[in-house]
Design a protein around this nucleic acid. Structure first.
Length: 220
DNA sequence: GTTGAGCGTT
């Protein structure tokens, strides 16, 4: 009854403290961290968020400890220790039961010592998978941008002329640059069938469906 | 094949 709480989806988290491990190698797995953090205390579980598209590690992991004292010890012991050739950073996570001591991302609890929780004031970036998403998204944006510019008033365009020019050169160094590459802006050597789909109003959907047409009901 | 600040899933 008096299980008032439910701060986290999993009840197991209630009896465990989460630690955030950063600066871990991209190929470091939980199995590699398990024996490492297990030496500092009882590790309940270790989870490493991975990309659902590629499946590669993002470079950080979450280690859950049964007790906070052990977690704190792991932070002080494993924090700054070279793993897989790189120093890892261990600190308390904002998610979990220990969040009670964290107020809006700021730890209300007194710092153990001069640990320097503040890492750096460097701006944080998103996942490194953005560059690949921009690949096809850039085409859509370009089309929208061109259409948007048509409807835009000419007077405003005058001011945007600077930005547009600057941006235009940013995307393409020069129209001749493509010609030098032999692309000539278009690919006439393409398949005629491909051209049909190119003019299709709907973008080519990726055959993400791996469902087998034959095995429709695997349950029965 | 790449990268390097951050806060998570069934």
């Amino acid at each position: 009854m008096s299980h008032s709480g439910g701060r986290s989806g999993q009840p197991a988290v209630r009896d465990s403290y989460s630690l955030l491990v950063l600066n871990v190698s991209f190929r470091t797995t939980a199995d590699d961290l398990l024996p490492l953090f297990d030496r500092c205390g009882r590790v309940v579980d270790i989870y490493i968020p991975r990309d659902r598209r590629t499946g590669d590690s993002r470079g950080f992991a979450f280690v859950r400890y049964k007790y906070e004292d052990e977690a704190q010890k792991a932070v002080d012991k494993l924090d700054g220790r070279p793993v897989d050739g790189r120093n890892i950073m261990v600190q308390f996570a904002k998610y979990g039961p220990n969040a009670e001591r964290i107020h809006k991302g700021r730890i209300v609890e007194e710092v153990s010592k001069s640990r320097g929780q503040s890492r750096s004031h460097s701006p944080r970036r998103r996942y490194r998978d953005d560059y690949r998403d921009r690949g096809y998204r850039d085409d859509y944006r370009d089309r929208d941008y061109r259409r948007s510019r048509s409807r835009s008033a000419e007077r405003y365009e005058n001011e945007r002329y600077q930005e547009r020019d600057n941006r235009s050169r940013s995307r393409s160094i020069s129209p001749d640059y493509d010609k030098r590459h032999g692309k000539n802006g278009r690919s006439p050597a393409r398949r005629s069938g491909t051209q049909s789909r190119s003019y299709s109003p709907t973008p080519p959907s990726r055959p993400r469906d791996d469902r087998s047409p034959r095995s429709r009901s695997p349950s029965n």
